[in-house]
Amino acid sequence: MIEIKGLTKKYGQFKALDNLNLTLSEGTVFGFVGANGAGKSTTFLILATLLQPTAGDVFIDGVNIRKNPQAVRKMIGYMPDFFGVYDQLKADEYLDFYGASYGIPEAERQKLIPQLLELVNLSHKRHAYVDLLSRGMKQRLCLARSLIHDPKVLILDEPASGLDPRARVEMRDILRTLKKMGKTILISSHILPELAEMCDEIGVIDNGRLIAHGSVAEIQDKLRGERVITVRLAGQLDNTIAFFEEDPYVTNIEQLDANDGISFSYKGTEEDQVILLKRAIMNNIPILSFMEHVTNLEDVFMEITKGAD
């Protein structure tokens, strides 16, 4: 559905995007994660036909955005990270204006608008002035607006930024519904865990380069090369340290603060880890607990972007 080939955007000597390549199939929910200024919004602006790329091509459903931006606009629904609303317009009038802007006949718009407001849980605000809605409501209304012409692709730039926890949950629920509807969704965030739950694929961008791309599990596995394991003991601290030091995959052994165990980094596979635990028990090491630290997605992101500098 989306094919990005060698996409580059330069501002003078500064490369905001550097040879970005990405292919997404229909119905994929793709999370674009990166720090502020990494190149997420630049990519989205190009996809939304709002910014001219310096080099490279983008195809949406086979249509080149350089050659036929007008056709691309009909296929995409774009929600920018920062957007304004027209004061003095009511929620239904706001949607009606954009519906008319996409050439949807009035009779059809009148049927669509209540459905869209229902989808984003704003039916009760139908006649409320848009500028009086809360930020979360405006975000949801803007999402409804981006859906009015039933686009195949949704480009959502930080849709949950600045929302309170309840509004975030509501936004996530709506995106799940859209995923079920089979939309191809590109969604950006600088918070990886926020995307992990709802995305099929994740791309990590840093300094304009796509430095990791795959499923959430694949990206987490990238860090699994080195896990941190904590072992709590019922004694024999010195013997235990000596035992683990002999293992070729164990490094950075440290005593726990309470002197009741150790922690170490482990580079072996999960099978190797099972064998290590079996061997420790067979060597009569008094293990109370043997625990792998669950890798935090924030740590994954920090680790990946650290390596890219």
Partner: peptide, 8 residues
């Protein structure tokens, strides 16, 4: 930006 992404 939103207005410019419509098909007008």
């Amino acid at each position: 930006s939103i207005l410019l992404t419509t098909s007008q």
